[in-house]
């Protein structure tokens, strides 16, 4: 902290910041409120279901250590998304080394889903498989905007990329996704 300018007085801010490193009292609340979303986001970013529990654990360990950096007046999901993204990217790197299959079984035929629940399940499987066909960078923008409905300017900030780049990745991500859905539906005979 350099010299303290007169119109901006900082003691309260300093006090609050000084408090945070020793006292992240809301970590449990963050965990409870966002666990499902973090888990699902990891899934959308390409981590197979069997590894999502471990990956979510890694995310929250990192979140705990960085909680003091979180600015509470800002929306939390875009902030958490950064952790999920890094975890997913680490995962892909090590998964590649192990050369294990990453994908779950492909979506089954959407032909005669007996009930809405089964259809929703198949839709999800289709979405996840199609997401797997989207380029990583594009997918991050696509997921945060199309599924989490975060406005593009915020997506750009969260990912640390220019807004125009975010728009362009969104457009390309949509193309990738559409093409993948068409391909999967053609293969499975779904509607």
């Amino acid at each position: 902290m350099t010299e303290r300018p007169s119109p901006i007085r900082t003691p309260d801010v300093e006090a609050a910041l000084a408090l945070q490193p020793v006292s992240p009292p809301d970590f449990a609340a963050v965990f409870e409120a966002h666990f499902d979303w973090v888990w699902s986001t990891l899934r959308r970013l390409g981590i197979p279901e069997r590894d999502c529990d471990d990956a979510a654990q890694n995310v929250f360990v990192a979140v705990f250590r960085r909680l003091a950096d979180y600015d509470p007046v800002r929306p939390m999901k875009p902030w958490l998304f950064g952790f999920a993204l890094r975890t997913a990217s680490d995962y892909r790197r090590t998964a590649k080394n192990r050369e294990e299959p990453q994908a779950d079984p492909p979506a089954r035929s959407g032909g005669l889903a007996a009930d809405a629940q089964a259809m929703a399940r198949e839709d999800r499987a289709l979405v996840l498989e199609a997401l797997g066909a989207v380029d990583d960078d594009r997918r991050a923008v696509f997921v945060l905007h199309e599924i989490d409905e975060v406005p593009i300017p915020q997506v750009a900030e969260a990912l640390g990329i220019p807004v125009n780049t975010a728009y362009s990745r969104l457009r390309l991500g949509r193309e990738d996704f559409r093409a993948a859905v068409r391909r999967i539906r053609a293969r499975t005979g779904g509607a």
């Binding site: 979140v63 950096d69 902030w79 952790f83 993204l85 406005p151 300017p153 969260a158």
Partner: peptide, 20 residues
């Protein structure tokens, strides 16, 4: 919205990515 809104005075700022 697919368009940038004008309401960007307080956008989300990217967190430093988690350290490895």
């Amino acid at each position: 919205s697919d368009r940038p809104t004008t309401s960007t005075p307080v956008p989300v700022v990217a967190p430093p990515l988690p350290q490895a």
